[in-house]
Amino acid sequence: MSRDAILKTVRASLKGEADVDARREAVKARLSSHQRNLIPARGQLGDAERVALFAEQAEKVGATVTRVDDAGAVPEAVADYLRGRNLPQRVRKGNDPRLGALPFDKTPTLEVNTGPSDGTDLVGLSHAFGGVAETGTLVLASGNDNPTTINFLPETHIVVISAEDIAGDYETVFERVRAAYGEGTMPRCLNMITGPSRSGDIEQTILLGAHGPKDVHVVVVG
């Protein structure tokens, strides 16, 4: 009932059904054309500069960033980070094959648990779907590979990202989501994460580590 009543009022306010067919065509075209609006120049850079801007922007919002040459160096980079933060050598990750293929045998003291987080893990390890240089934003897709709970429950979140997946702008990442999941289809949850959790609710002073991770560490591969 409400549905029809609301749509009826909307149509009446929009001057009735007169041009509804023409409008329907226009809307259909808009939804399928994926036309980009103005995109800021900031992120439109060559490969090296784009990755550098991503790191710079991520650090500006309180994340830390390490760069490694290839995936083989990731376990050591993770172990080093944990040691530097005086954290136990233990991480929780999903079933992402890119994480599964990492040579964790190189870091025998690093305990790697697989599956969603139940809230008892101190450190989560994810692989990003993509990144956005413009604002240092990580984009993570939900699913068995990278469960959403790992992004939010552990106090420390380590995110691995391939340099080639770092785009200049959000639009490019969304286009890659379409390519990966299909037109008009999305992963259940797409998390765009820009730095560690924070709150300004006490006297408008920004404090890091509200309900999500207090630390976000990004390992850029390549």
Binding site: Q57, V61, G94, G115, P116, E134, T135, T137, S142, G143, N144, P147, T148, T149, M186, P187, R188, C189, L190, N191, M192, I193, T194, G195, P196, S197, R198, G200, G212
Partner: peptide, 24 residues
């Protein structure tokens, strides 16, 4: 709003947990 370039979490949610999903 806050003078941030981007808020920390921008989350797009589409439907409930899917068969292969471990959470949600």
């Amino acid at each position: 709003a806050t003078g941030q370039d981007m808020s920390v979490y921008t989350t797009l949610s589409t439907g409930p947990r899917r068969p292969e999903d471990p959470d949600g």
